[in-house]
Write a protein that binds this DNA or RNA. Structure first.
Lengths: 196, 196
DNA sequence: ATTCGAATCGAATGAACGTTCGATAGAACG
DNA sequence: CGTTCTATCGAACGTTCATTCGATTCGAAT
């Protein structure tokens, strides 16, 4: 069924865009139906429920996010690996207009059971950056978790202030943020001052 | 009216907690009424509408956030000023259990007109950090906006990973993040490589 | 003692919500 | 041609939503 799959993706596109703009709870099935040019009843031919729609949308976003950062694992130099990860992550955040918001804001709206798989995926994604940082500076392993949190924060917050005309293209911004982070990370600033 | 004001604050406390936990759109006036131990009709004696409830809650959160960082403006040393700002900001985020979420997630749910004042306040708060950074390193003025975005990102993201038993107390975490950021900021890593 | 205003409530209102049902149009297949 | 299956729909279902109304309680003021 070619036509079916195409329609299905279109519907998820519509749902994703609306969830990203207004949030899950502010979006009704009627909104999605209108955006996808289908009747409300017709919508249920493709989606079993609103919750499942959110689940499908989240999984799709994760697929794209991981696809964009997967290439970093192929590189041998840890520095380049980090740079590639940041670039891939930031590219997705800044170019797939605001669909990352669904992951950041609406993931918690998933039912507790359906939540499990997607939340585990999020943890795994976070951990991949932790590992990447630990490999960069082995003696900083104990700080890698905090460092990963700090770096993800820098990146995930970027959509709120980034403007291409002021900040250059996405890859350039990714490089500058990577450098900013790495200078602090390599300086050992994160090491807890337990000895003081 | 002493009793009135007390009740009013209690009701806003309930609304704030619910908005923070579930989000604005997922919270009903019935939820708020139940949490505040009042009837739904009684709730409307204190709150003119759900929108206004959100507006009041947001203003109150901003009041507290600004109160916590205001002391930094009194310091003369720019480094101490930044450290105090970060400390105040992070203290609020990590200790007023998750009420910052209302500002981060639900501010956009405000009506466009009621939005204006609160959004301006947010801009002003952001700008205060930009100014603070520009004062720290005058030749980096053009990068202060990006640096402020990066720093706010690090801080605003902290609640998602911070755990006291693993990361130390809030002030210690604030200091480590400040150092992490400052090493990168002072290194000039942010300066756009236009000359390349 | 009567009046008044502040604080509260149960019950209703109309709209919007997620979801379902039965019907229909047309393509595919025998 | 008749049947079956896919895709679609209008109309409804029961529930919940934000909000309002009219009535009630009760302490304070006149």
């Amino acid at each position: 069924m070619q036509a079916y799959d195409q329609r299905y993706e279109d519907i998820l596109d519509s749902a994703e865009a609306l969830f990203a703009q207004q949030g899950f709870h502010a979006t009704s099935m009627r909104d999605i139906a209108r955006a996808a040019c289908i009747s409300v009843a017709g919508l249920y031919y493709y989606l079993p429920s609103k919750q499942q729609a959110l689940s499908f949308v989240c999984e799709r976003i994760f697929d794209r996010l991981e696809a964009g950062t997967a290439e970093s694992a192929l590189l041998s130099d840890p520095n380049e690996r980090l740079a590639a990860f940041v670039r891939g992550h930031l590219r997705y955040l800044l170019t797939n207009n605001r669909s990352y918001r669904v992951l950041l804001h609406d993931l918690q709206a998933l039912d507790r059971d359906a939540n499990g798989s997607t939340r585990a995926r999020r943890r795994r994604y976070f951990q991949s950056l932790v590992d990447l940082l630990a490999a960069l500076d082995p003696h900083a392993e104990e700080n890698a978790r905090m460092a990963a949190g700090a770096l993800f924060g820098m990146l995930n917050w970027a959509p709120t202030w980034y403007r291409e005309e002021a900040d250059g293209d996405v890859d350039a911004a990714a490089e500058r943020l990577t450098e900013l982070f790495l200078h602090g990370f390599r300086s050992g600033a994160l090491v807890a001052q337990a000895s003081l």
